[in-house]
């Protein structure tokens, strides 16, 4: 029993170290990578343009729900004027970065893990290596670099759309004066909050895309299955671990920054 715990802990430490090396390798491969810009553009398309609809839809509904729930709660205290504060602070500080990252994991991260897993399975990654092409530089570095830019943008879009969603349900449906809503939004959000939001988004982008790439890239090392099963197993693991790490990192960053 004790030995099993020990073995399990060691394997976790081993995997963490392996993951850190993997991420480091991905950044190091940026040096000397050819036509990196073009690959980054493609990655930006996958993470940015492709995920834009889901970000806007989820952001809008998050704002609408926050506006609705917030209005009914604040209404009991006669403080409807604070609706903007509630919606904007929850969006900027927590929901924006976390939900946007979760949506991006669902759409771009899972696709990345599955794609890399299949490429590993069909020897496409080995083929790259035999051509003298660094598979890290070609497949992973551009995605990681794109994520560092795309995640903050998606988060900012999510928050912006969410704020409008909040104003929509607050003022249009429930009759709160839009000026009151927006002035309390502008009053509540401070530069520090926006900075925290961006820091979170960049961290989530780095962690989730690297984690998804790690699992897809190492699909052949999956111990529980081989072939197509290994791809599905590693994709599942990538999405689950990414989702957990988003919320865990969110907590850690919040407790350090606030």
């Amino acid at each position: 029993m004790l030995r099993a715990i020990g073995r399990y802990s060691l394997s976790i430490v081993h995997e963490l170290g392996d993951f850190a090396l993997f991420t480091g390798q991905s950044f190091r491969s940026a040096v000397g990578a050819r036509r990196l810009g073009r690959r980054i553009v493609r990655a930006g398309f996958e993470q940015g343009v492709r995920c834009l609809p889901v970000i806007i839809i989820v952001g809008m509904f998050t704002g609408l729900v926050l506006g609705l729930q917030g209005y009914y709660v604040l209404n009991r205290f006669g403080s409807e004027s604070l609706l903007g504060t509630l919606v904007s602070l929850s969006l900027v500080r927590e929901l924006g970065p976390a939900l946007a990252a979760l949506m991006l994991v669902g759409q771009a991260g899972s696709a990345l893990a599955a794609e890399l897993g299949i490429q590993r399975n069909t020897e496409q990654i080995a083929a790259l290596e035999t051509m003298g092409v660094s598979s890290h530089a070609y497949l992973i570095t551009p995605r990681l670099l794109a994520a560092l830019v795309v995640y903050p943008m998606q988060t900012a879009l999510f928050v912006t759309v969410g704020l409008w969603g909040g104003s929509l349900s607050g003022s249009l449906l429930l009759g709160l004066e839009p000026g009151v809503y927006w002035s309390s939004v502008e009053h509540a959000v401070k530069a520090q909050d926006v900075r925290e939001c961006i820091i979170k988004a960049v961290t989530f982008g780095l962690l989730t895309i690297s984690l998804c790439a790690y699992h897809g890239f190492n699909a052949h090392r999956c111990s529980s299955a081989t072939g197509a099963r290994a791809v599905s197993a590693s994709t599942t693991r990538a999405v689950v671990q990414s989702s957990i790490i988003v919320l865990a990192a969110d907590y850690i960053i919040t407790s350090f920054l606030v």
Binding site: V41, R42, G44, F45, G48, V49, L52, S88, V92, V149, V150, P152, M153, Q154, A156, L157, V159, T160, V185, E186, V189, K190, A191, Q192, D193, V194, R195, C197, I198
Partner: peptide
């Protein structure tokens, strides 16, 4: 592809600027 990504980047930058300038750093 470049066109779409360019549009997205413009949109993203606009959103970030909106957040930082309009909401965050009025005093600045």
């Amino acid at each position: 592809l470049e066109l779409y990504v360019g549009l997205f980047v413009l949109l993203g930058i606009a959103a970030i600027v909106y957040l930082t300038v309009k909401l965050g750093a009025k005093s600045l």
